[in-house]
Amino acid sequence: MNFLTINGKMINSRGDRIWVITTGLFCLIGLIGLTNFLIQGHDAYNVHRQVPWGLLISTYIFFGLSSTGLCLVASLSRVFGLEPFEVIGKRVIVMAIITLVAAFVVIGLELGQPLRMIYNIISPNLAAPLWWMGTLYGLYLTAIVVAFILMTKGLHRYVGYAILVGFVSGIVKHSTLGSVFGLLDARLWWQGPFIPISTIVAAAAGGCAIVILLLAHRYYREKMPRDVDQAVRTTGRIFTILLGILLFAEFWKVMTTIYGGIPGKHDAMMILLNGPMALHYWFFAVFLGLLLPFILLLATGGKRLEISVVAAISSLIGLFFMRYNMVVVGQLVPLRPDVDRAHPITGLVSYNPSATEFAIVIGGFGLCLALYFVASRVFNLDAEAARH
C-alpha cells in the first residue's frame, strides 16, 4: 500500500520505505540537536578557547569537499570531453548542490552569529583567505545551480560553460580553504602547502565514491544501462588512482613529520600514530579510508559493482575521519601548556564532541538523504540529451 506520493511517483517499495524511515530518523535527531543549540547556544558544544574548531567544522569541510568532488566528476564530460560521464551529469550535479547546502547548514549552526556573514559582501577584506573562500563558495554554488537549470531546460550547449566556472571556482575555493589552515604559522601541524593540495585530491576521491553509490542505488533493482556501467567502471579506475595518490602522500607526510621532529608538528603526528587518536587514524582514516578500498578496487579493476560499493562506503567513512583528524589534532598540542588547561600527564588539550554536535552532524546527513530523495522524484535525473 502506498503511503506517500511525490510528483506523481509513489513510494511503495521496501527500499523506498527504508530510505524514508532512515532519513526521517536522521532528520529528527538533527532537529533535537538544533533545538538544544537554540536553547543553550554555543554552550551546547564542547568546543572551547583552546579548541575552537570541532566536529561541525570538520563535517562542513567534508560536505564541501564532497560537493567539489562531485562537480569534478561532472566536469569530466563537459570540460574534458569524456563521453561516458555525460549520461550521469544531472544526477551528479544535483548531489553536488545538496551536499553544499548541507555544508552551509552545518557551518551556519556552528557560527555564533551566522547573519553576520552579510559583512562578507558589504565589508570585504581582500587580504583574508576566509573572505576569498566565502566569495568563491558563492560563485561555485551559483555556477552549479545554473548548470543544473540549463540541464533541466535542455540547453546543453551552455551547460559546459557553467560547469567550467564551477570546476575552476571549486578547485580554487578548496585550495583557499586549505590555505586557511596552511597559512597559520602558529599551528605547525597545519602550516605548509600540503593541506591546500591534498584537499583537492581528497575531494575528487570522495566525489568518485559518492557517484558509485548514487548509481548503484539508482539501478539496484534493474539492469544498469551500458553507458552508465561504463561511467561507473571508469569512475572506479579514477577512484583507484586517487586513493593511491592519497596513500603515497600520507606515507610521506608521516615520514617527513617524524624525521623532522619539529615541535608542535611532531607532537600532533604522535597523537595520531600512538596517542589518544590512534584508532581514528590507523583504523578509520588509513585502513577504511585508503588501504581497504584501494586493495578492493585494485583487485577487481572496478569491474564488480558490489565491491566498488563496499570500497566507496569504506572510503567515505575514512575521509570523514581524515577531515576530523586534520581539524582537531592541530589544536590538541597546546600553544601555552602552562595556561591552556593541558593534561598534567599527556600535556595535551582535550576535546570530545558533545551529543548536540553529533546530533547536528547526523541531521546534516539526513538532510542530504531527504533532499536527494525528493530531487530524484521531482526531477528526471536520468534524462540527458545529447550535446549540441
Rank of each mutant, 00 (worst) to 15 (best):
V168D: 02
L272V: 05
M326H: 12
A311E: 00
L139V: 15
T346S: 15
G302Q: 08
R14T: 15
T59M: 11
G261V: 02
G30H: 10
A311T: 02
E83P: 08
S308I: 01
L155T: 13
V254Y: 14
P293I: 00
H174L: 15
I29L: 10
S58A: 12
L141M: 10
V51C: 02
F379L: 05
L65I: 10
V168A: 12
W19P: 06
S77L: 03
W190T: 08
V168R: 07
A102L: 11
S179W: 10
A202T: 11
F181H: 08
T152R: 10
P353C: 02
V286D: 00
F80V: 04
P293L: 07
F320N: 08
G134C: 04
G33C: 04
S308Q: 15
G301Q: 11
I313C: 13
L296H: 07
S308D: 09
I271A: 01
I163S: 04
V361S: 10
I313R: 09
V105S: 06
D16E: 15
M255S: 13
W252L: 05
E250R: 01
L139K: 00
P276M: 06
I107D: 02
S58K: 06
I258A: 12
H217D: 15
I121A: 13
F85V: 01
Y161S: 09
G8C: 10
V73L: 05
I345W: 13
A143V: 05
L332C: 05
H343T: 09
G363M: 03
L316V: 00
E110G: 00
M151D: 12
T240A: 13
I93H: 12
G289S: 02
V361W: 11
T257C: 01
S77I: 01
F379D: 05
V309A: 06
P84A: 06
L290A: 00
T240F: 05
A299S: 14
G236C: 06
M117R: 03
I32P: 07
Q113E: 05
L242K: 04
Y351W: 01
V310G: 02
K153A: 08
F3P: 03
P276E: 09
V159E: 11
W131M: 14
R377N: 03
W252P: 07
S58V: 06
G154R: 08
V20Y: 09
R221G: 10
P344Y: 12
L296D: 07
F194Y: 15
F358A: 13
F148H: 06
G112L: 12
G160Y: 00
R116C: 04
Y219I: 02
E306H: 11
V165A: 15
P263R: 08
W132N: 05
F251Y: 10
I32V: 14
T235M: 05
F181C: 02
P344H: 05
L246S: 04
T346R: 09
V339H: 12
L273M: 08
Y220D: 11
P84D: 03
V329D: 13
V374K: 07
A128K: 05
G154D: 03
D227Y: 12
T257Y: 07
G41W: 09
F283W: 10
Y45T: 10
F379E: 04
F85M: 09
F167K: 08
C208A: 07
M10Q: 11
R78A: 15
A128W: 05
A102G: 04
V228R: 14
L38G: 03
Y158P: 09
F284N: 03
I144W: 11
I271V: 02
G69W: 06
F62V: 09
L100I: 04
